[in-house]
Amino acid sequence: MVQSLGFLKETPSQTAGPYVHIGCTPNFSGITGVYEADLGISMVNDQTFGERVTLRGRIFDGTGTPLRDALVEIWQADAKGLYNSPSEMRGTADANFSGWGRCPTDMETGEYIFETIKPGRVPYKDGRLMAPHVTLWIVARGINIGLQTRLYFADEEAANAEDPVLQRIEHRNRVPTLLARKDGSTYHFDIHLQGEKETVFFDI
C-alpha cells in the first residue's frame, strides 16, 4: 500500500432541465419580486472602455430546430485583454466591465443577444497571444453537461491565423464553426449541436 492521494471526485453534472430560468433568470421567467434584476443581463455601462459590439445567434439541435429553452453564459477579457477576476494576476481589469454575461434564448425565436465590447488579446500558456475570443457555456434540457465553446471574430483574420487554440483543430473545415460573422457592430454566431455544421466544443 502507498499513501492515498486523497483527491475527491468532481460532483457529477446533471441537465439544467426545462426550468433553468426559474433559478438563473427568474425575472425573465415571470418570477418577479425575489431578485431586483436577473444576474448577468448587463455587462457594460457608459464608462466601459472598448469597441461596443452585439453578439447574437441561435443554437440548433440535430434536426435544425432552434433551442428555445437554453441558457447561454459568456466570459471574456476586457478591451485590454484583462479578466475581471481575482485570478487575474497581470493587472487590473476595467472596473466598468464585468466580463461575464448570461442570456436565456428567446422563448419564441431561440435567439440569444449580448451587448458587450470586443475583447483584447490574452496570452496562451506559452506567451503567444490568442486571438480575441469569447468563451461560451451552454446549458439546456437534454444537455447532460454544460457545453463549452469559443466565439472568435471573423474579421480578425491575422490574429485568428496565429491563434494557438484554433491551430489545434485538426479538421480545418471545422474552424469556421467558431467564427462570428461581422455585420456592422453586430457579430452573428450560430451554434450547431449536431450535423454537418456541428460547432467545435471544448474539454478545457
Partner: peptide, 25 residues
C-alpha cells in the same frame, strides 16, 4: 431529449488557458 442535443464529434481537449482559469466571482 439528449438524442438531438448531444454533440456527436469528439470534444477538443486542451489544458486550461487564462480564459478558463479565471472566472467571475
Amino acid at each position: 431529449t439528449s438524442v438531438v442535443r448531444s454533440p456527436q464529434r469528439a470534444l477538443l481537449s486542451l489544458d486550461s488557458t487564462l480564459s478558463e482559469i479565471t472566472g467571475p466571482v
